[in-house]
Amino acid sequence: MSRTEAHPEPPALAPGEVRTRWIVSTPPILFLSLFFLAPFLIVLLASFQYPGEFGGLAPLLAQGDSPDHGLTWENYQFFFSDTLFAEIFLKSFLVAALSTLLCLVMAYPVAWLIARSPKGRRDLLVLLVILPFASNFLIRVYAWMIILGPQQALAQGVNWVLSALGQEPVNLLFSPFAVLVGMVYVHLPFMILPLATNLEKHDPLWLDAARDLGATSWQRFWRVTWPLSLPGVFAGSALVFIPVLGMFAIPDILGGTRDMLIGNLIKDQFLGVRDWPFGATLSILLTLAVLGLAGLATWAGKPRRGHD
């Protein structure tokens, strides 16, 4: 909250102010403690519980002759007992990393154009990035279901080329490729916007200076623009990587049965096989991964001396 310090506040809150402070702060704090913090703590607890006989959770205290009650490490042990789960986590990280990289490559030219445009056109270009991402998420995924469908020109064209080369025809839809396209399409604006915000702040004089010193256009990009844009790159990467990591709907709609990611695994534990404690364990592990990544992005995104 460094911005608050910018405004000098009265040295002490007046007596009326103290009451106001509680009137203002209590409702949101209570609501979010009840509907965000408490549910999260319950999931943390559930990850150490046994599954109930008919789904849900087994009781914490002994009831009747049920042997499974109390707390256990079993769910975490189960995760590490089978490499299948580690593989799904690894695959999810790989998909998230690839999606982030593709988003970065596609976002850079757009962000650069936005940053270099005069004020009025800049707002229009930003609005044009926001508009498609304001349409329903499922609709954007569904659009690719149509485009990648076997009867569409794209799939037919690809298979025509493949058959000319003597290869077996492929299915574009319900494949890892479709999942990746969907991930990139849905998250691209999250990369463009922070990157453009960063690039806007670059002084064009820096590039002129580099040019006067004899830098080629490639050197100007690689030695000046790119290092200076790293905070924007890291912010955008976090905004793409983290939601992709937990995504279940895109693999569910565009992927095949073998394209399961962490999100699908978690969804199945709660709504399919109904093993809540293991689902809770997976959720906690995903949370830890996200926290680690967010910490890493904050650390990496901090401007360093020498780059300022």
Binding site: F35, F36, A38, P39, F40, I42, V43, A46, G56, L57, I242, P243, L245, G246, M247, F248, G263, I266, K267, F270, W276, G279, A280, S283, L286, T287, V290
Partner: peptide, 16 residues
């Protein structure tokens, strides 16, 4: 955070 985490934690909270 990823939406699924809030989704499942609220599911457990409401039911349990």
């Amino acid at each position: 955070m990823p939406e699924i985490l809030l989704g499942v934690s609220l599911l457990v909270f409401f039911l349990q």
